[in-house]
Simulated assay, not measured.
Amino acid sequence: MAEPALSISPEKVCFIVVKAREFDVQDVETDPDSGSNASDDAMASVLEAHGDDPTYDELVAFIDGLTEEEQVDLVALTWLGRGDGDISDWPDLRREARRARNKRTAAYLLGKPMLADHLEDGLAEFGCSCEEFEKGHL
Rank of each mutant, 00 (worst) to 15 (best):
residue 2 A to F: 12
residue 4 P to T: 04
residue 6 L to K: 06
residue 7 S to C: 10
residue 7 S to V: 00
residue 8 I to V: 15
residue 9 S to M: 08
residue 9 S to P: 01
residue 9 S to Q: 10
residue 13 V to Y: 07
residue 15 F to S: 06
residue 20 A to E: 08
residue 21 R to Y: 02
residue 22 E to G: 05
residue 24 D to G: 05
residue 24 D to N: 12
residue 26 Q to K: 15
residue 27 D to F: 12
residue 28 V to W: 15
residue 28 V to F: 15
residue 30 T to V: 12
residue 30 T to P: 05
residue 31 D to I: 09
residue 32 P to Y: 09
residue 34 S to C: 15
residue 35 G to V: 14
residue 36 S to I: 14
residue 38 A to W: 14
residue 43 M to Q: 08
residue 43 M to C: 11
residue 50 H to F: 13
residue 50 H to M: 08
residue 51 G to N: 10
residue 52 D to Q: 11
residue 53 D to V: 03
residue 54 P to K: 06
residue 63 I to K: 00
residue 64 D to V: 05
residue 66 L to G: 00
residue 71 Q to D: 02
residue 73 D to C: 06
residue 73 D to Y: 07
residue 77 L to P: 04
residue 77 L to Q: 01
residue 79 W to L: 08
residue 80 L to S: 00
residue 86 D to Y: 06
residue 87 I to M: 09
residue 87 I to T: 03
residue 89 D to N: 10
residue 94 R to Q: 12
residue 94 R to L: 04
residue 95 R to D: 09
residue 102 N to R: 11
residue 106 A to E: 01
residue 107 A to W: 10
residue 110 L to K: 03
residue 112 K to C: 08
residue 112 K to Y: 10
residue 113 P to M: 02
residue 114 M to L: 13
residue 116 A to V: 06
residue 117 D to K: 15
residue 118 H to K: 06
residue 119 L to D: 02
residue 125 E to S: 11
residue 126 F to Y: 08
residue 127 G to M: 09
residue 128 C to S: 15
residue 128 C to P: 00
